[in-house]
Structures are given as structure tokens and as C-alpha cells.
Amino acid sequence: MCMACGQMFSSIHWSDRLKTDEKGFVDQRVLLRTRQMKVSVTNKILGYYGLSVRNRPGGGYTVMNRTGRALLCKDFGDLWFQVQKLCGKTVDPLDPDLLSYLEAKTDQEDV
């Protein structure tokens, strides 16, 4: 347990590893920026499945579907599993339909 925030955690997902200073601390601004970035990118992907994700204060994320059903997840190892539970599909970055959706979305934003 983290003695500063009282949060229970047991591991750091590999994708959450950031550069640390010589004392082993992560720059909090970088941490916040990275989390924000992750949420915004993931939302673009989850749009295809009719879901959305948001940062949970104190750590972790909340995934929601359009009817408001929400599941909590601690990191990106867990997130894809919870998404699968919510929408019944596995997020597959090799799925041609998802890729066309993302490309179309990027084109729209470019215009």
C-alpha cells in the first residue's frame, strides 16, 4: 500500500513505466501528461466499440458503455480485459475494420 495516498497496488504495468530521476522518482507532470494522453488515445480506439474511458482520481481508469455501465481497471493490462467484458469483443489492433475506422477518423481530423 502506498503510505502517501492509501491506495492499494501491487505492481506497475510495463506500459506505465516512465523515466525516473536518480532517486527513482517519476516527474509528476510527465506522469499526469502521460495518463491524459493515454485516455485520449484510448478513447479514440474505444469509440469504435461504443465505449469510453476516463482517468480515475487516485489511479486507474474507469471504462464505460453508453448505457452508463462502468467497470474499474487498474492499468492497461487490465483495461483490455474489462473492455472485453463490457462489449463482448476483444480489442484487436489488427482488425481491418477497426483500422479503417481509425484511419477515417484521422482523415476527418486532418480536414
Binding site: W14, S15, D16, K38, F76, W80, T90, V91, D92, L94
Partner: peptide, 11 residues
């Protein structure tokens, strides 16, 4: 990290 974690989750 998002891309690779999703890829590894699926494949």
C-alpha cells in the same frame, strides 16, 4: 504502450 498492450492482449 497502448498499441502494444492491446496487440499482446489479442495475440
Amino acid at each position: 504502450g497502448i498499441w502494444l498492450s492491446a496487440l499482446l492482449y489479442a495475440h
